[in-house]
Design a protein around this nucleic acid. Structure first.
Length: 563
DNA sequence: GAGTCCGCTCGG
DNA sequence: TATACCGAGCGGACTC
């Protein structure tokens, strides 16, 4: 059953119930937000799917009142998927003129940016009514696109997983990641020296700057300026064209060591220093904003705080509350396992059975070392053509013909300008006009060698994108299902209505890794929930195909201890 | 001074 | 010779 929720103005909603086929089961009702909250609590027992335009806009309002829901359908996220999916390419939804659902990015519909799209008309009842009809029409269009799709089952799963992800993202932002500023501060002081005013260099950084200037014989050198540093290195007789750390490591000069250390520490200061701590840690919690569907492949993005790039250096500041644990789980070699299942490659799946997949490849005699197995696999999924990875590819192709055939086919499709589709139905975008124009140009009678080579380069670039899209996107779907299943099972551990400060809950997600903050007494139970959820996610995506999704799971006091 | 691009490093 | 996918964020360099 669906409960369509349309927000009107700042404090009211119109609510309307539908059955699974999209027929209304009651007349629309207008409720104040307080009445709406009561309505949600009353109806949650029936496990409806709450339908709204944008989870990120409405769900935080419920969370602030202590209300959580089990299921939703996020019209905006689902629209984007079906607008592009090859599974719904025959639908009206895919063929309609672009409308507000296409124009609106997450921030456009978001509360912070104002509500320009719809709310201009909300001052009168006609506008309110039209807003509600707009949502209702969109829901019906989406339901029709699903039932008419080539794979309704998979698509339904994808839309449910994407929507569950939106709920989880809002809940994680709301709950926050436990963060100890005292430990963070100690760590910064130890590495950089005592805190100083913004714009100044802490003591240890300043000493390194002086040392670098001395070694390069340039008393005015600014070590933060790549151009300055590059010129000084060249003056010192070093043949370099960039100041990238891995390039500098190849050089033999006394300035290199302090320079590399300076870069490392200054990055720590600028990205996750005291200013970051002041801006992002509130009452011992880090509250980043996650952006479900923020990446073309279906991965999440994040806005503000660099939540998806927390450097290993500072993970020791993520500490469980007293009497609580962090259960950290990481899916091992997720993408190769996804590739094995996608392609139905039994040999590759067997290599990962009950163990490290790369070690399994070595044990099968395909390559000699784990490191070789890893670079060869990554190269196959990313489209490496040269170097070690390129050299090892033929051996991989011989041992795992089905898996490699799948990545090659995805690459060829992209090179031709075609689209590719993930396991559950997210399709890659078609290449843009500039790409098409470059290809057309190369076929023109007057095409130059440069035209042809540019077209070829762009075609290969796009092929690498589609090659990776299938695997990365399907892995993102697995991760969403995994997390949704974890969330569902965690809720069975506590009474309905209990707040985040008393029950186990998800606090972090990073592509193939999740973290649950839990009372210590429930940590073991949480570990098994996470493990079972991985197997369930595998079955949801790939049925009985015999592929294992191995995890490393650990209940720890702080994030740094997890690996 | 504001806006944008680039170089670099962090994460998977 | 060019060189392997998806991102965020910072500070400097450059432009208007």
């Amino acid at each position: 059953m669906y409960q369509l929720v349309t927000r009107i103005g700042s404090d009211d909603v119109i609510i309307c119930a539908f059955d699974a086929s999209g027929s209304p089961t009651a007349s629309p009702r207008r409720l104040s937000f307080t009445e709406f909250c009561r309505y949600v609590l009353e109806h949650e027992a029936d496990s409806p799917r709450w339908v709204w335009d944008d989870t990120a806009r409405i769900y935080p309002l419920l969370l602030r009142r202590g209300i959580r829901v089990q299921r939703c359908h996020d019209l905006r996220l689902c629209h984007v998927i079906m607008r592009n999916s090859a599974l719904t390419d025959q639908s009206d939804l895919a063929h309609g003129e672009p409308g507000p659902w296409d124009a609106a990015g997450p921030s456009d519909l978001g509360a912070t940016q104002g509500e320009t799209l719809f709310d201009l008309a909300d001052s009168d009842t006609a506008g309110e009514r039209s807003r509600e009809i707009e949502d209702r029409d969109e829901l019906l269009a989406q339901l029709s696109a699903v039932s008419g799709s080539h794979q309704p089952g998979r698509l339904r799963l994808l839309l449910a997983a994407e929507s569950a992800g939106a709920l989880i993202a809002a809940e994680m932002t709301y709950a926050g990641l436990p963060w100890r500023t005292d430990i963070h501060d100690d760590l910064l002081t130890r590495e950089l020296g005592a805190r100083v005013a913004p714009g100044l260099r802490p003591e240890r950084l300043e000493r390194l700057a002086v040392l670098i200037r001395t070694e390069l014989g340039d008393p005015t050198l600014n070590p933060d300026s790549p151009t300055d540093v590059l010129r000084a290195l060249q003056r010192a007789g070093l043949a370099v064209t960039s100041t990238r750390a891995w390039r500098l490591k190849e050089l033999d000069h006394p300035v290199i060591e302090p320079l590399l250390l300076y870069k490392k520490l200054s990055r720590l200061l600028s990205a996750n220093g005291w200013a970051w701590m002041d801006a992002w840690i509130v009452d011992g919690r880090f509250h980043p904003e996650y952006v479900p569907g923020g990446v073309v492949t279906g991965r999440w993005a994040a806005r503000g705080g660099g939540a998806l790039q927390l450097p290993k250096q500072i993970r020791g500041a993520v500490v469980a509350d007293p009497g609580w644990k962090l259960v950290v789980a990481d899916a091992a070699q997720l993408e190769p396992r996804i590739l094995a299942a996608l392609s139905g490659d039994l040999q590759m799946a067997a290599a990962g059975r009950d163990s490290d997949l790369y070690a399994g490849i070595v044990a099968s005699g395909v390559v000699e070392t784990r490191e070789h197995a890893k670079v060869a696999m990554l190269g196959a999924m990313y489209g490496a053509t040269t170097g070690e990875s390129g050299r090892l590819l033929p051996r991989l192709a011989k041992a795992y013909p089905r898996a490699i055939a799948l990545t090659e086919a995805a690459a060829r499709a992209g090179e031709r300008g075609g689209i590719v589709t993930t396991r559950l139905g997210r399709s890659s975008p078609p290449p843009g006009d500039a790409w098409q124009a470059a290809q057309a140009q190369a076929y023109d009678v007057g095409a130059s060698r440069a035209d042809e080579s540019r077209a070829r380069t762009q075609a290969r670039d796009w092929g690498r994108f589609t090659r990776n899209f299938v695997v990365q996107g399907s892995a993102a779907e697995w991760a969403l299902c995994w997390m949704a299943e974890i969330r569902k099972e965690l809720r069975t551990l506590s009474a309905a209505g209990a707040g985040f400060d008393s029950v186990p809950h998800l606090v972090f997600f990073l592509h193939d890794e999740v973290m649950v903050h839990t009372p210590t007494a429930l940590a073991a139970r949480v570990e098994s929930i996470i493990t079972e959820a991985a197997a369930t996610a595998g079955r949801l995506l790939f049925g009985d195909f015999p592929v294992d999704f191995m995890l490393t799971v650990a209940a720890v006091d702080d994030y740094a201890a997890a690996k």
